[in-house]
């Protein structure tokens, strides 16, 4: 997926064509740059699993950033072990809210507490969330939980309070392997856009049609169901529910 092409609507294309007709002499790259720079940001994250060592620094940073209650997680790391000795491997899959373009959670929220922001972040207003748990059911990534302190649904929001001040999310800031890259996908000059352009990236549970904005490089998409094909494999998390959901 090419970062600079994300979110190009027909209107944008018509607009940029119009701009091109007016300024025929203008160099093409710069006019394209001008058209996209005016757009509002579209935040996303790339997780390069080759650089992840499963150290849980992100999990801990997230826990302390939000004072997440015991046993619950906004951000977690799955350990994927597979094979029979000596042909074995371990890989890690950091997980968080995927900030989907088609956010099932926002679609089912009866009070409008969960909503999709202009910049792509799916946010929750805990003041009007009644804790009906419909969104917990609707999320294909099990990214949500009920915060027992507020009684409201809770999940990763890319550290909204930090990025509004221009600071990167806590997990990105803390990752010692620099496995996490956060940025604006509408800006072709941003690091995340460059990384996505230059690497094959995948998203989780693509078949759900949610179109996530969290991308993975070299993620192991093996699942415990693959055991049925005769492979020895195991997925564990440090969440209250040890199995992947």
């Amino acid at each position: 997926m090419n970062g600079s092409q994300l979110d190009l609507t027909r209107r944008d294309i018509v607009k940029s064509l119009g701009a091109g007709a007016v300024a025929v002499a203008a160099a093409l790259p710069s006019s394209a740059g001008a058209a996209t720079a005016a757009k509002s940001p579209r935040y996303g994250m790339v997780i390069d699993t080759r650089r992840c060592s499963g150290c849980h620094a992100c999990s801990v940073a997230c826990k302390s950033e939000f004072n997440v209650p015991l046993g619950l997680t906004r951000s977690w790391v799955e350990y994927i072990e597979k094979g029979d000795f000596p042909n074995v491997s371990v890989s890690f899959l950091p997980r968080l809210c995927n900030q989907c373009r088609h956010a099932a959670c926002a679609d089912v929220c009866p009070t409008g507490a969960t909503y999709k922001r202009q910049d792509g972040i799916v946010a929750i207003d805990p003041d009007i969330c009644i804790g009906c748990k419909y969104c917990l059911q609707a999320c294909p990534y099990d990214a949500r939980f009920i915060n027992p302190v507020t009684g409201a649904a809770d999940k990763c929001d890319f550290c909204l309070h930090r990025i509004e001040k221009g600071i990167e999310p806590s997990c990105v800031n803390t990752c010692p392997g620099r496995a996490r890259i956060f940025g604006d996908l509408n800006d072709p000059g941003s690091e995340i856009s460059k990384v996505i352009s230059r690497n094959p990236v995948t998203v989780l549970r693509k078949g759900m049609g949610t179109e996530p904005f969290v991308f993975y490089i070299a993620a192991d998409h093996a699942d415990e169901h693959d055991r049925k094909r005769g492979w020895n494999m195991r997925v564990t998390t440090h969440r209250r529910q040890k199995e992947r959901r």
């Binding site: 009644i130 804790g131 027992p148 009684g151 409201a152």
Partner: peptide, 20 residues
């Protein structure tokens, strides 16, 4: 409801502040 379990017994009324 999570809100009821957390002690906000009447928060469910927000259901009727909107319709979607």
């Amino acid at each position: 409801l999570g809100s009821f379990e957390a002690g906000s017994y009447f928060k469910f009324l927000y259901l009727f502040s909107t319709i979607n």
